[in-house]
Amino acid sequence: MTNAFVSTVDTPIGPFTAVVAPDGAVLASGWTGTADDLLPQVSPSLRPVELTARRDLGQVTRAVRAYHGGDLDVIADVPVRQRGGAFTEQAWEALRTVPAGKPISYADHALLAGRPAAVRAAASACARNAATLFVPCHRVVRTGGAIGDFRWGPAAKRWLLAHES
């Protein structure tokens, strides 16, 4: 991919930046003020060569603001584009089916992705997820309810889970 757009908006957790393809699909996103923290997570085949800053990314910006304002389901309608192995892509799709306020365990995530024994692979898919929020990996917790890891920190994950409960 040669070009993409980037925008940062303020949220209650801090700045949220999204990198979006020309067709509106999210390539990467997260609670950071810079695309430099996001681009390494994007598959090389999708990674843009050039980023153009925009104040507003249309549907993506509206969804980020609406989600943080309490419309928890708005993120499901935003298109996402990620590339990985077959199971990783399946695991990312499975995450998009997890309802807000109903966190699941990594074991449940593996089951939902179609490979119950692949708990480590399911956790790895969460760790490799470039489109945070739109692919809600924050909804996966450790068995027993412990927060687990999150690229944007445990405080952000706690806020998101509390916001959705």
Rank of each mutant, 00 (worst) to 15 (best):
M1I: 09
N3F: 13
F5Y: 15
F5H: 09
F5N: 07
F5C: 03
V6L: 01
S7F: 09
D10T: 10
T11K: 00
T11C: 00
P12H: 06
P12L: 11
G14V: 05
P15T: 03
P15L: 12
T17S: 09
T17P: 07
T17V: 09
V19P: 07
V19I: 10
P22E: 14
P22C: 08
P22H: 03
P22K: 02
P22M: 08
D23M: 04
A25I: 06
A25F: 11
S29D: 10
S29L: 10
W31R: 01
W31C: 10
T32D: 07
T32E: 09
A35R: 00
A35M: 02
D37Q: 09
L39H: 06
P40S: 05
Q41H: 12
V42D: 03
P44L: 02
P44Q: 02
L46W: 08
R47L: 03
R47H: 08
T52N: 04
A53D: 15
R54T: 01
D56I: 01
L57C: 06
G58M: 04
T61C: 06
T61V: 07
V64T: 04
R65S: 13
R65M: 06
Y67P: 06
Y67L: 11
Y67E: 07
G70F: 13
G70N: 08
D71F: 05
L72S: 01
L72R: 12
D73M: 05
D73P: 01
D73Q: 11
V74R: 00
I75T: 15
A76F: 08
P79K: 03
R81D: 12
R81W: 14
R83G: 04
G84W: 02
G84D: 03
F87K: 00
F87M: 01
F87H: 01
E89K: 02
E89D: 11
E89N: 05
A91I: 03
A91R: 06
R96A: 11
T97S: 14
T97R: 08
V98I: 13
V98L: 12
V98A: 04
P99I: 00
K102R: 15
P103Q: 09
I104K: 00
S105F: 13
Y106H: 14
Y106P: 00
Y106N: 02
Y106I: 04
A107R: 13
A107C: 04
A107V: 01
D108A: 12
H109W: 13
H109Q: 10
L111K: 13
L111H: 10
A113H: 02
G114H: 11
G114S: 06
R115F: 13
P116R: 02
P116L: 06
V119R: 13
V119F: 06
R120W: 15
A123I: 01
A127I: 11
N129I: 06
A130H: 06
A130I: 09
F134E: 04
V135T: 15
V135F: 13
V135D: 07
P136D: 12
H138F: 14
V140K: 00
R142N: 12
R142V: 03
R142H: 13
G144E: 07
G145V: 06
G145H: 10
A146V: 07
A146F: 07
A146N: 05
G148W: 05
D149E: 14
R151K: 10
W152I: 00
W152M: 12
W152R: 00
G153H: 05
A155C: 01
W159K: 00
W159Q: 03
L161P: 02
L161E: 04
H163R: 07
